[in-house]
Design a protein around this nucleic acid. Structure first.
Lengths: 332, 332
DNA sequence: TGGAAAAATGAAAAAGTTTTCATAAATAGC
DNA sequence: GCTATTTATGAAAACTTTTTCATTTTTCCA
């Protein structure tokens, strides 16, 4: 191990001076200081410093597919605020495979630089769980259920959310309710579709497959799905979209066809992203309860950070319906 | 300063044993180990460990008002990707005064936990600059010019952007071009308005104050401004909005009035947030060149991280016009 | 330019930590 | 149950770093 003595020798000065340089003490000539720093660098000397026994970074890694998506943007905001309350900062990782970032970097980050991880992406999920367990890094899965794995999870009840949305429309007198879902292989797409189906069933309405379209959670796909609904001359007075972006796309399409929301068609979205409440008409939507979700996630993480033997939990929260201007009683 | 001797005394054991516990040496009874750890905790003893002279956190703080705003979401994504290329991670701070977070926390973060800061908020800006200078924390201002201060700055030429947008509409034959600006006390609002004015001037069109409205950068304010334009029965065939959200709000308003974009009115936005290219019609917009901005910002920061005496620079980038479906030649 | 004050430095003392070594306690093997 | 071996421990030696203190060098000012 390189020590201060060797550094002093190489810098051609005394041990005391090197010590002063390292500790930023006063009274060292700039020239000498530079010589010492050079020697330190050359010998790769690592001085001793005081450190807590258990080094807490006070950092939490947040892994999302893409913050520029308003949904994950809202999530990041909520989690950053919640983390702040516990004195933690959020390290943001976008992992959707678009940015070619080296993946090992993600694993290194998780293992060495953060006190815990909130994971809201699907990328390399099994591997991340495995490594986190090995290295005892606290981990909370957001919005993804991993079957047959004991891991902290916070989800919302998507079935219930869609059920609520459908029930709301039914209570307004709607009987023909279209549904624009997400990709079939997404858990949440299917859960939301099922909630819609169950509500129809409960109120004795028939589930009509011809009114169900699949989008891919983008505005564009919502627009296109609605366009097809109109072109196919489907008969409907209300629409549920599996997320707000698709709802907005659908509304745009309706507007362009001279169909008024909510006068002619009522629309319910899902997520309550920030623009949902600033658009016109304001969007009725199933509000993803980001504040409660953030709080619970942080609590789970904190528990595990302070005591690594705490056993994982699975928390399911219930969304609420934010009733706004895009839904209205069916006109007679 | 608490030392190992005191810990030994409190744990009722010898200095050597405490040292062994700290260094995870072999041959310490679990019972003794626990006693020592307890004493360490109680006395808050911080052992000495080897550390590189210049401790690089490999973290960069990104301060924005609110990531849930799609504009800042896009910015965060771009910067996170760029930082990743340099081996750095982004620590996300939302500072818009909504979350009551303790402000000292922000200053502590900046001073002690990151290698550099990218600041894209207006909150406490003078103070942050002052402290960063004192503590020699590399700092880059994004999108804010701080007059009479030598500080790294990356901005886009807003005048030029608005000029481009206006020129584009004029080249399509539009002569009556409305403008929805931002709050008057924002630098960028005024710059964008001036660019619009200059372009009109250049092409011999008159600047008509009656076609200029002020919004607050939200969808809602764009909607309302357009509503007033229509109610006031203003004569215009094109619109420039000072950001995309207001452009979208305005388009929604037009749609609801049965006015087609782009057939009846052409619309240009500003920023190119992610939804601009996934809505229908796709929005023609002045593209905030986030990739180039991110790269330049990181380069400035890296320079200053590796050599603290590097002098600050001010970089201005030129936006490009992303011509999409929301603009069209004026019909005869 | 002379001399007082401030800055810079190294030797050595002091302080803090790790390692060695001798020894005691616990465990295993027979 | 008795020795041999491993485990556990403290005193002291060895090592590392910081601090003190005396001395030299530089700077500042009349």
């Amino acid at each position: 191990m390189v020590n201060i003595k060797e550094v002093a020798k190489r810098a051609n000065t005394s041990i005391a001076t090197v010590s002063r340089v390292i500790n930023n003490s006063s009274n060292v000539k700039e020239e000498t200081r530079q010589k010492v720093l050079k020697a330190i660098k050359e010998l790769n000397y690592q001085p001793l410093t005081r450190q807590p026994v258990v080094r807490e970074n006070q950092f939490i890694g947040l892994v999302v597919p893409d913050v520029s998506n308003p949904f994950f943007g809202k999530m990041a905001r909520g989690l950053a605020d919640a983390a702040g309350k516990f004195g933690y900062s959020i390290i943001l990782c976008n992992i959707d495979g678009i940015c070619g970032g080296e993946d090992d970097y993600l694993l290194d980050l998780i293992e060495n630089r953060v006190d815990g991880v909130i994971y809201a992406s699907s990328h390399r999920i099994r591997e991340v769980i495995k490594r986190a367990k090995q290295k005892k890094v606290p981990l909370v899965m957001l919005d993804r259920e991993i079957k047959y794995t004991d891991i902290n999870t916070v989800t919302i009840d998507n079935n219930y959310g869609a059920f609520l949305a459908t029930e709301h429309l039914i209570s307004l007198g709607h009987k023909k309710i279209a549904f624009i879902g997400g990709p079939k292989n997404f858990q949440i797409s299917e859960q939301r579709r099922i909630g819609y189906e169950k509500a129809l069933e409960k109120y004795g309405l028939s589930y009509d497959e011809e009114l169900v379209y699949a989008g891919i959670f983008t505005m564009e796909s919502g627009f296109k799905a609605m366009k097809r609904l109109l072109e196919d001359k489907k008969n409907f007075s209300a629409l549920i979209a599996a997320n707000d972006l698709m709802a907005i796309g659908a509304i745009n399409c309706l507007s362009q066809h001279g169909i008024s929301v909510p006068d002619d068609v009522s629309v319910v979205g899902f997520d309550d992203i920030s623009i949902a409440s600033t658009m016109e008409p304001k969007l009725t939507t199933v509000a993803y309860p980001i504040e409660r979700i953030s709080e619970r996630s942080l609590e789970l993480l904190m528990k595990q950070i302070s005591n690594e033997d705490v056993s994982p939990e699975k928390i399911t929260l219930f969304p609420k319906l934010a009733v706004r201007g895009s839904t209205k009683s069916l006109k007679e």
